[in-house]
Design a protein around this nucleic acid. Structure first.
Lengths: 135, 135
DNA sequence: TTAATTCCTACTAAATTACTCTGATTTAAA
DNA sequence: TTTAAATCAGAGTAATTTAGTAGGAATTAA
């Protein structure tokens, strides 16, 4: 199981914003240079970050992005959710689980994957952007 | 981030073995039917499970596979490792981390991904095959 | 008016996943 | 001794997903 660049880049970009956008909006060109992520790719990510109200934008020259709430109120899970970085331990729909009787091996491992989901998502729920950048 | 079928199927197959191979070896055909996994795919997985000494094989008619150690001594991490289901939160090599100075955003998130790695791998280290099948 | 920027959609190349296919080898049982 | 059920082994392939690129439209400070 691996993390995609989408999620990784989104967190890096948000950490960059948290570090540099205190006084003025930060342009994606700046982030692109600092973090070595393609500008066009960042643009796509920020559309979603904006939709999720994690960042706000200023258009035009001298424009850019800034956090839309304090870094202390943004969880990693918020960022991942915004860019559709999902934790998926099953590829079937949750509904298919209903079909299981409690004795089948399939169902036994379903319980394992459910716990794994909870375990991983719990991690993302408990880390805030602020913690990343302080220190 | 998502779990691949390789890892999921390997755990399902091992749970099946743990449930059914107490007295006689279990053929992959049986597992294939019970778990609805293609025979040819299972064959590939079991080559690796055998190399890692998690299962032993009996060739020929009436042959099959059985656990090579008690289910209480097999961790999920052992199974994942056997079939190369890896947890990868970075796509770069670990060495590149050395290049980081502690102030860069890149390095800050590196620490996060390292913790995530540890968090997920810890889960797999702490669940044994036995726990899956009892109850 | 210009240039720097966000915004938007479609497309594409590369990588990975999830298999299939073919055939060899082994061995219990008829 | 033959047959059929099984493991063993490697190569090939189709489908999906990822990781971008490309091309422009809209906005706005200077």
């Amino acid at each position: 199981m691996k993390l995609t660049t989408k999620g990784r880049y989104a967190v890096m970009a948000m950490a960059d914003l948290a570090s540099y956008s205190e006084n003025k909006p930060v342009s994606l060109t700046e982030i692109s240079t600092r973090q070595n992520i393609s500008l066009a790719y960042l643009e796509q990510l920020f559309i979603h970050l904006k939709e999720s109200k994690l960042v706000k934008s200023v258009r035009g020259v001298k424009g850019g992005y800034a956090l839309d709430r304090p870094a202390s109120e943004i969880k990693i899970s918020n960022i991942f959710h915004a860019v559709n970085e999902e934790v998926k331990t099953l590829n079937c729909k949750k509904e298919s689980k209903k079909g299981c009787n409690n004795k089948s091996v399939k169902c036994i491992t379903h319980n394992l994957w459910d716990k794994l989901d909870t375990h991983i998502n719990g991690f993302f729920e408990n880390v805030k952007l602020e913690e990343l950048i302080k220190r």
